Amino acid sequence: MSAPGIILDEPDRLIAWATKQFGLDFFSDARAIGWGTLDDIRAVAIYERWTGTDCSVHLVSDQRPGWLSRRFIAAGFTYPFVVGGLHRMTGLVPASNKRALRLNRHFGFRIEGALRRGANDGGDMIVMGMLREECPFIAKDMLHEQ
C-alpha cells in the first residue's frame, strides 16, 4: 500500500466519499482536496458556497489514527487562501460537537456568532471564521493581498 498523500485530481470521488461519511449533500459549487490514497481515503476538506471573498469549509474524516497530518492541514488552508485567493473561510459547527469546536479553535478559527437552533440536533450552530492573515498554517509571504 502506498503512503498517504494529498489527493487533488479526483474531486467528484472525494465529494462522494465525504457525502457518505458526513451524511449530508454539498452545494453544486463544492470543491475538495483529500488525504490518503484513492484506494484508502482518510479525510476530505470540502469548500462550498464560493462568494469571491469567502467559502464554507467542512472537514470530514474516517477518524482512524493518522487521518490528519500537517501536510494536509497546510494544503487545506493553502487551497482557499492562496490558490482560491479568498479573504476568509467560514465554518458552521454544531454547539454539541465539542471535539470539532476545539479542533477549529486549534486551527485558528474564531467564534463569530451562533445560528440559534440551527443544528440538526435542535441546538445552536456556531459560526466560526478565519481571515487569510490569521492563518497559522501557511507562510506569511504566501498571504500577500490579492
Rank of each mutant, 00 (worst) to 15 (best):
T51A: 01
V60L: 05
L68K: 13
F72L: 09
P65T: 08
R102T: 15
R70M: 06
A75M: 03
D62P: 06
G76F: 00
F72A: 04
T78W: 15
S96T: 10
R88W: 01
C55H: 10
F81Y: 11
V57A: 13
F77R: 03
W50I: 00
G84W: 01
T51M: 07
L86W: 01
Q63D: 10
R102Y: 06
H87A: 09
V93T: 12
W50Q: 05
G85S: 01
V57M: 14
V93S: 03
G84Q: 07
A74P: 04
G91E: 00
V82I: 12
L103W: 10
W67K: 08
L92F: 13
D62M: 04
C55I: 03
G76T: 14
S96E: 01
V93F: 01
W67V: 13
V93I: 15
V83P: 02
V83H: 13
D54N: 15
P65V: 07
L86S: 00
T90E: 03
F81D: 06
G66W: 09
V57P: 00
G66F: 09
W50T: 02
V82T: 07
G91A: 14
L101F: 01
A100N: 06
S69C: 09
I73C: 10
W67L: 04
G52D: 12
K98C: 06
R49G: 12
L92N: 11
L92S: 06
F77P: 03
S96G: 05
A95V: 03
L68A: 12
P80T: 05
L86H: 00
R64I: 12
F72G: 10
G52W: 06
N97H: 11
S96A: 13
H87I: 00
R99A: 13
F72T: 11
P94H: 05
G84M: 07
T78P: 06
G91F: 02
L92D: 08
T90L: 06
I73R: 06
V57S: 11
T53H: 12
S69M: 08
V82W: 02
S96L: 06
G85C: 05
A75F: 00
V93E: 01
V57D: 06
D62H: 03
Y79F: 15
R99W: 08
G91Y: 03
Y79T: 09
A74I: 08
R64E: 12
S69L: 08
M89D: 03
T53E: 10
R49C: 05
G84V: 03
G91Q: 04
L59S: 12
H58S: 15
F81P: 10
P94C: 00
F72W: 14
R70P: 09
N97S: 01
A95S: 13
L68E: 11
M89G: 00
L92T: 11
W67S: 15
W50A: 04
P80G: 04
Y79V: 02
P65E: 10
S69F: 07
T53G: 12
D54P: 03
G76I: 07
V57F: 03
G76R: 09
T78F: 14
S61N: 15
T90K: 09
S56V: 15
L68Q: 13
R102D: 12
G91N: 10
V83L: 11
L103H: 06
H58M: 05
R71Q: 14
V93R: 02
T78K: 14
P94L: 05
V82R: 11
R70G: 07
S61C: 15
P80I: 00
W50M: 04
T78E: 14
V60Y: 04
R102L: 04
C55R: 11
H58P: 08
